Computed example of a mutant assay.
Amino acid sequence: MKNSLWTLAGTSVAAGILAGCAAPNPGAGASNTPAGQPPVGGQCNAAPAQSFVGKDSTASVIEAARVQSGAHMARVLRPGQMITKEYNTQRLNLVVDDNGRITAVRCG
């Protein structure tokens, strides 16, 4: 009896952990994404956001570039700033000059 309780408890814990890792069904339910915008949390594609090179890195421009690229997040990289080097396929990087003007758009 004691072993079966431990087995049942272990199975319940494992099922709970796996349920938390399950990916949601993208076709189920309503979408919170406004029409014409890519979903949040997608793969970054810097090509559609290249039109933002030369613009000031205001909050609205950064968000528009993120949406245009389909990335989940965006970060601004300033001259001399220390940054993490890990590659993140869901992140858009906006490289800016000393004046805050975007000089490069890339994923990672």
Rank of each mutant, 00 (worst) to 15 (best):
C44S: 01
L5K: 03
A15Q: 15
T11F: 14
P26R: 06
A15M: 15
A49H: 03
P26F: 04
S60K: 11
G27H: 08
A30M: 11
C21W: 14
P39N: 04
G41E: 02
A9G: 12
G54S: 11
A47S: 14
N32D: 10
C21D: 11
A15N: 14
G36K: 02
A47G: 12
G54K: 08
S31W: 04
Q43I: 06
A15F: 15
G29T: 06
N25D: 15
A35D: 06
V53Y: 06
G36E: 03
F52R: 04
L5A: 05
V53E: 05
A22L: 12
I17T: 11
S31A: 08
S57L: 04
T11H: 09
A19K: 07
T7G: 09
A9R: 07
K55Q: 10
Q37N: 01
P24A: 13
G10N: 12
P34H: 01
P39S: 03
V53D: 05
P48V: 02
T11W: 10
V40T: 11
W6I: 15
C44W: 01
A59I: 09
A59W: 08
A35P: 01
N25G: 15
G20V: 10
G29I: 05
C21A: 15
A30G: 12
S60D: 14
L8M: 13
S12P: 05
G41Y: 02
T11L: 15
Q50K: 14
G16W: 13
I17D: 10
S12M: 15
C44Y: 00
A46H: 00
G42W: 02
Q50H: 09
L8Q: 12
A28G: 07
L5C: 01
A23G: 06
A9V: 15
G27C: 05
A30Y: 07
V53F: 09
Q37D: 01
K2Q: 09
Q43L: 07
F52K: 04
N3I: 06
P39V: 02
A14Y: 11
P39D: 02
T33K: 00
N45W: 04
A14M: 15
G27E: 11
A59C: 06
A35Y: 02
V13M: 08
S12N: 09
S57M: 05
N45D: 15
G29N: 10
V40A: 09
S57C: 07
T11Y: 11
S51D: 15
G42C: 03
A14F: 13
G20Y: 08
Q37W: 00
C44T: 00
T58W: 06
V53L: 08
C21I: 12
A30H: 08
K55T: 06
W6A: 14
A49V: 02
G42V: 03
V13K: 05
S12F: 14
A19T: 13
G54C: 09
G27R: 07
P38R: 09
G29F: 06
V13F: 08
I17W: 12
A49L: 03
T33M: 01
Q43P: 02
G16K: 12
P26M: 03
T33G: 01
K2H: 08
P34D: 01
A14C: 13
G27F: 12
P39F: 00
T7Q: 08
P39E: 02
T7S: 09
K55A: 04
